[in-house]
Amino acid sequence: MIRINLLPQTARRRRRPRAGRELPVLALVLVSIALITAGALWSAATEAESDELRQQTASLKEETRAVRDSFDPGALVPRERALQAERAAQDQLKVGRRTPTALLVVLAEIVAAGDPAALPGESPFAGRARKGPLWLSELRELDARQWSLTASAADLPTLTGLLRRLRSSEHFAAVAPAEYVREDDRLTLRVTLSVR
């Protein structure tokens, strides 16, 4: 039997088996297998990690449950009361720092430095009774850290010395500008002090 190919020339070429055509197909199959294997390995690793996280979560829940079961709210009441008492004591100490007692001790030292006749520990208001060169007339709280001070002196250098000592004291954050008033034979000074 004789076979005659009646197909056109281009079709004949297409029907002929070509060498090397299987190589790209084989490479595509190998790449597909590698991708499927990598995906399966990644999925297995992710599943193992998820299992480990589930176990850790379960153990943490168990520990939390054990701590909650052993928790005694009645034991916290005395500790809470002690903590509240400690906070109240701290607040009282903070308020105590701003009371005039501590401020008067500082002012007594400052006034005594300008009055050689002052006795150690003497009140800064005592100079009036003994007709000293410098004494305090009034100390009034303006707010939590500000005080108004009124002082009386025989002359201007005594008052400026008082202001200089107030400004150089570490106990005062600021000393406002002073107001001077002459009353009879004495000078009166009014100044606002900011306490640290």
Rank of each mutant, 00 (worst) to 15 (best):
E80N: 13
R98D: 04
A27R: 09
E122Q: 07
G114C: 06
V31A: 15
L134F: 01
A44C: 10
A118C: 04
S137E: 13
D51Q: 14
T192N: 10
R196A: 15
S123G: 05
V175C: 06
R190P: 02
T188S: 12
W42T: 07
V29A: 15
L103K: 00
A34P: 02
R79W: 00
A113G: 04
D143I: 05
A126R: 03
T150L: 08
T188C: 10
W135T: 01
L60I: 11
E141C: 09
R128N: 11
A44Y: 06
Y180N: 00
R3N: 02
L166A: 09
R14A: 14
L149H: 02
H171I: 00
E62H: 13
P177N: 07
E47T: 08
Q90M: 09
G20L: 06
L76P: 03
S59K: 04
A176H: 08
A118I: 01
E22I: 07
R140Y: 05
E138M: 05
P24D: 03
P24A: 04
V106Q: 10
D69S: 12
T57P: 00
S123E: 04
E179S: 15
L107Y: 05
L156S: 07
V105C: 03
F71S: 11
P120K: 02
S152D: 06
E62P: 00
R164D: 14
A45K: 06
A173R: 13
